[in-house]
């Protein structure tokens, strides 16, 4: 048990540093820009306009409250995608944090996930506003929202730690990951509905834990469903496992980072 908890020690011990560095990350990202933090909202909103036009006007889809549906999925997907992309590059781009200091280097990776989480959470009030405007109901399923967020956090950290390690030794990793996340976006129901898929695909698609994560968000904000307990518990287990495996891989090579970066 103690061994198990040790894996999360850095998260607890360095939580304040992680938080401060994540805020710094955002501050620097928007420094000098006129709209500042609003860009965090503008980007998904602009995407929303494009996809709503595509979906509703061109493909004449009549799904109710499509913008809510799309926004529900695109926000956490953006969080995931940016975390993974920035996370993959974080060790290589870590500079003196990696080569000159002794603090646990996984912090550099985790900071990217947290920074993008802050970005995500800033968009959530807009999502609530949308839900309100389109007269959708948010009920008790919203209680599991924090757990879904935690799951996504652990999955993202795990994947990002794994990929950041690969990136140190194989600089192609980032390019591959860029394409993969793009593919991933279309390989799951974020812009389209599950019901539009051929029946055989409808369930297979949720073998992908990221797709299942996105489904949970949609259940909370769009369908007002509780997820099935079996699947939900599976999701929690998978996210913790992803974190542990990603971290384990990271720890095998972590001592070499300072020499290769």
């Amino acid at each position: 048990m103690k061994n198990f908890l040790n894996q999360f020690e850095v998260l607890i011990k360095y939580r304040y540093l992680i938080w401060i560095l994540a805020l710094k990350e955002l501050k620097v990202r928007y420094r000098g820009s006129f709209l500042g933090f609003f860009w965090s909202l503008m980007n998904p909103l602009l995407l929303l306009i494009i996809y709503t036009f595509l979906f509703v006007v061109i493909f004449k889809n009549t799904a109710k409250a499509y913008p809510v549906y799309f926004f529900t999925g695109i926000l956490p997907f953006t969080w995931f995608q940016s975390s993974i992309l920035e996370g993959t590059n974080s060790i290589v781009a870590g500079g003196s944090f990696i080569t000159k200091s002794t603090f646990p280097s996984e912090i550099v990776v985790i900071v990217r996930v947290v920074a993008n989480f802050i970005n995500y959470i800033l968009g959530v009030p807009i999502l609530f506003l949308f839900v309100f405007v389109w007269h959708l109901k948010i009920g008790f399923p919203v209680l599991i929202f924090p757990i879904v967020i935690l799951c996504q956090f652990f999955i993202s950290c795990g994947i990002a730690m794994f990929l950041s390690t690969l990136q140190v030794f194989y600089r192609d990793t980032l390019q591959i990951v860029m394409n993969l996340t793009q593919f991933l976006f279309f390989a799951m129901p974020v812009m389209y509905f599950t019901s539009q898929l051929p029946p055989k695909l409808r369930h297979i698609i949720y073998i992908n834990p990221i797709a299942y994560l996105m489904k949970n968000y949609q259940d909370i904000f769009y369908f007002n469903y509780f997820p099935r307990p079996v699947f939900f518990i599976l999701l929690i287990i998978i996210s913790i496992l992803t974190y542990i495996l990603g971290r384990a891989y990271f720890y095998i090579y972590k001592d070499q980072f300072a020499e290769f970066v």
């Binding site: 304040y16 540093l17 003196s96 944090f97 000159k100 200091s101 603090f103």
Partner: peptide, 30 residues
Amino acid sequence: PLLELGSGFHPELTGRENILINGLILGLSK
């Protein structure tokens, strides 16, 4: 370790913010 002075400093942040971050990296509490 003070291998390179100012390692971990961020140029866009103020001196005070950098003191905080550097201190945290060196293992101090807030």
